[in-house]
């Protein structure tokens, strides 16, 4: 009687232990779903698009003939748009974070700003496109230009930069602030000479992640009406435009029509011919390598900071 009880108990314990192992395996498998998808996606792209990744692909304009088409205007467009985004988003985002973390009094205005930052992070990206279409394109009359696209993406990644900068500022101990004040520093001197320096790594991580996101964003830029077929480059400052014989102004490129890599890819994906799909895959490789490299850099940077800075 007692012996069978003990056996039953042992069997039950063994059973439960098996569940433990089983779930450990299931959990590992579920976690692998993501990693495997990432790998399959990358391999699929490489198999489809690798043959197209030649030197000519980077130096040719899009074309009706798939074999001659390239991504010159698209990558130049992406680089210029990112330049505008960085110039607009970095000071705005870091400034906002410094205010919220170091200056903001505890009042309703600060609460309002906090709520808005949280909410903006959850707004679908295409809505930023609608905002830009109404505000930048028509009310401010920037047109469907590099400037409009850069500012749109800057607004989109603002919450990312703000959150990263705040986290980085928050991890600096109060003692550093007190030490600066004790030497007679003003608040801004304390922020610019001490806090910004110590939090540089964290801020940089946020900026890189934000920019990586901006490179891949397609929907808001399509919404502002970016063209999908561009066979020229924005005017280089001070070069002579053959049609008017006038030199281009230093900022004319800001108002130039443009296309970017994800839009070029979208354009090619939407075509039925297999040859264009290969071009799309090749463009996809370029985008994914750029974003993953940036994300990887950010993750590595964060890891390094966590390891090296100990207060």
């Amino acid at each position: 009687m007692q012996a069978t009880d003990l056996q039953l108990l042992r069997a039950m314990i063994a059973q439960h232990k098996r569940y433990d192992i089983l779930f450990g395996l299931v959990g590992l498998l579920a976690t692998m779903v993501g990693v495997v998808t990432l790998l399959v996606l990358f391999i699929d792209l490489v198999l489809d698009g690798y043959p197209r990744l030649t030197y000519d692909f980077f130096t040719s304009f899009p074309s009706r003939r798939a074999e001659e088409a390239g991504i010159l205007s698209a990558w130049v467009g992406t680089v210029l748009v990112m330049l505008v985004t960085a110039v607009a988003a970095i000071p705005l985002g870091v400034g906002a974070a410094i205010y919220l973390e170091e200056y903001a009094p505890k009042n309703w205005m600060t609460d309002l700003i906090e709520i808005n930052v949280t909410n903006l992070a959850g707004v679908p990206s295409i809505v930023y496109g609608l905002l830009a279409l109404g505000l930048f394109v028509y009310i401010l009359d920037f047109g469907q230009s590099i400037l409009t696209a850069g500012l749109t993406l800057a607004l989109l990644i603002l919450p990312v930069i703000i959150v990263a900068t705040r986290e980085s500022l928050r991890s600096i101990p109060v003692a550093i602030r007190e030490a600066a004040y004790a030497l007679g520093a003003t608040r801004w001197q304390m922020v610019s000479d001490h806090l910004l320096r110590y939090s540089m790594g964290g801020i940089l991580t946020g900026i890189i992640i934000g920019m990586a996101r901006a490179i891949g964003e397609t929907a808001p830029i399509i919404t502002i009406g970016a063209l999908t077929f561009i066979a020229f480059l924005p005017p280089v400052p001070f070069t002579i435009d053959p049609s008017t014989d006038l030199p281009a102004g230093p900022f004319d490129w800001l108002f130039s029509p443009f296309t970017v890599l994800p839009i070029q890819m979208f354009n090619w994906v939407s075509r039925p011919q297999a040859a264009f799909l290969e071009n799309a895959a090749a463009t996809g490789i370029v985008i994914i390598v750029a974003t993953l490299a940036m994300n990887g850099l950010a993750i590595w940077l964060r890891y390094r900071i966590r390891k090296h800075i100990k207060w």
């Binding site: 976690t31 990432l38 964003e217 994800p262 994906v269 994914i288 994300n295």
Partner: peptide, 28 residues
């Protein structure tokens, strides 16, 4: 150590541009 290795990969998954996912959905 598993957690520390897996989490960056999961973050990478979020970093892939959506138009690339569109290609993947349509053609794979």
């Amino acid at each position: 150590h598993v957690r520390e290795t897996v989490k960056p990969f999961l973050e990478m998954l979020e970093g892939v541009p959506t138009v690339v996912y569109g290609y993947f959905a349509l053609l794979f």
